[in-house]
C-alpha cells in the first residue's frame, strides 16, 4: 500500500501496476492510446474523477513521447502541421481546463464526463466490433492506406492556405486549428489523448498521407497532454505525482510487451473483444445516468 499525497487515499501498488500494465498491454496490442481505458479504470478503483483525468494526462505524455522517439527516426512527423494542430490544441485545452474547473465547482463534472464517455465508448466499441465482424466474415475493410480519400475537402477551399511540404499539401490553416482545438478540449475534460479521433480527421479531412499521420498526431498529443498536466496543476491541483509515476511505469512497460505480442496475432480479433468490452462499459455509464439512484443526495461542489 502507498498513500497518494494529492488524492489523499492509500492504494495497493500492485493493483495499480496491474491495471496500468494491462491497459498499456491492450493499447500496445491493438494500437490505441489507452487513455480512454485508463481513466474509467482509475474511476473504478475509487480514484476521484478530477485526479483520474488530470493524472492520466501525464501518463499519455509519457506514452506519446516514447512513440515519437521511434517515429522521428523514421522521419514521419510533419512538424509544421504538428505545430499548427498544437496551436489549436493549446487554445482548446486551455478552454477545456477552464470548463473542467468551472464544472467541478458547480458539481456537474461527473455528468459531462459520464455523457462523453457513454458516447465515446459506445461508438468506438461499435466500430471495432463491426470491423472485426467483417474481417471474420471474410470481407476485410481495405486498409487505410489504399482507402479512397476524397480528392478535395473543405480544407482546400477555405482561405489562409499554407504549404505543408512533408505531407505534400496546400490547404487552409483553419481546419487543422479547429481539429486541434476540439481534440485539446476533449483531452482536458476526459483524460484521453484523442489519437483515435485525430487520426481519422487528419486522413479524411486534411488528406494527409498515412505515413506521417501517426507521428504527427503523437506530436500533437504530447504537446497537449504536457500542457494539460501543467494547467491542471495550477488550476485544480489534482495531478498526483505518485499515482502518475505508478501509471507511467506500468503503462509504458505494458505497451511495449503488448506491441511485441501483438505482432504475432491477428489484431482484428483482439479489437473485436476490446470493442465488446467498451460497449459493455458504456452500458454501465448509461445505467448510472438513467436508473433512479438509491441515494438522492450527493456531496459536491468546491474542489474535492
Amino acid at each position: 500500500m502507498i498513500y497518494l499525497p494529492i488524492a489523499e487515499m492509500p492504494v495497493a501498488v500492485l493493483l495499480i501496476f496491474l491495471v496500468s500494465g494491462t491497459v498499456g498491454f491492450v493499447s500496445g496490442l491493438v494500437g490505441v492510446g489507452g487513455g480512454f481505458i485508463m481513466t474509467p479504470a482509475l474511476l473504478f478503483l475509487g480514484v476521484p474523477a478530477p485526479v483520474a483525468v488530470a493524472t492520466g494526462a501525464s501518463q499519455i505524455a509519457a506514452t506519446s513521447f516514447s512513440g515519437i522517439m521511434t517515429q522521428t527516426r523514421r522521419r514521419s512527423v510533419d512538424w509544421r502541421m504538428g505545430l499548427l494542430l498544437s496551436l489549436g490544441g493549446v487554445l482548446g485545452s486551455s478552454a477545456g481546463v477552464a470548463l473542467f474547473e468551472r464544472l467541478l465547482r458547480l458539481g456537474q463534472l461527473d455528468l459531462l464526463v459520464s455523457i462523453l464517455y457513454l458516447l465515446l465508448l459506445s461508438s468506438v466499441g461499435f466500430l471495432m466490433v463491426r470491423e472485426s465482424y467483417r474481417f471474420w466474415r471474410g470481407h476485410p475493410q481495405k486498409s487505410v492506406s489504399v482507402l479512397r480519400r476524397p480528392l478535395k475537402t473543405v480544407a482546400h477551399t477555405l482561405p489562409f492556405r499554407l504549404r505543408f511540404p512533408r505531407s505534400g499539401l496546400y490547404i487552409s490553416v483553419l481546419p487543422p486549428l479547429g481539429i486541434g482545438f476540439t481534440i485539446g478540449a476533449i483531452s482536458a475534460i476526459m483524460g484521453i489523448g484523442g489519437g483515435f479521433i485525430l487520426i481519422p480527421a487528419m486522413i479524411y479531412l486534411l488528406r494527409m498521407p498515412t505515413n506521417v499521420v501517426i507521428g504527427t498526431s503523437q506530436f500533437q498529443v504530447l504537446v497537449i497532454s504536457s500542457l494539460i498536466v501543467v494547467l491542471q496543476s495550477i488550476a485544480t491541483q489534482t495531478v498526483d505525482l505518485v499515482l502518475a509515476l505508478l501509471l507511467m511505469a506500468g503503462g509504458v512497460v505494458g505497451a511495449q510487451i503488448g506491441a511485441r505480442v501483438g505482432a504475432g496475432i491477428k489484431a482484428e480479433y483482439v479489437r473485436g473483444i476490446l470493442g465488446a468490452l467498451l460497449m459493455a462499459a458504456s452500458i454501465k455509464f448509461l445505467f448510472d445516468l438513467v436508473i433512479p439512484p438509491a441515494e438522492l443526495y450527493v456531496l459536491g461542489g468546491g474542489l474535492m
Partner: peptide
C-alpha cells in the same frame, strides 16, 4: 503549482524516453 506541473511532465518525458 506550475513548477510541480513542469516536474511531472519532465518525469513523464523521462519515462517515455527510458521505455523507448
Amino acid at each position: 503549482s506550475w513548477l510541480y506541473g513542469v516536474v511531472t511532465v519532465m518525469l513523464a518525458l523521462l519515462a517515455g524516453w527510458g521505455a523507448a
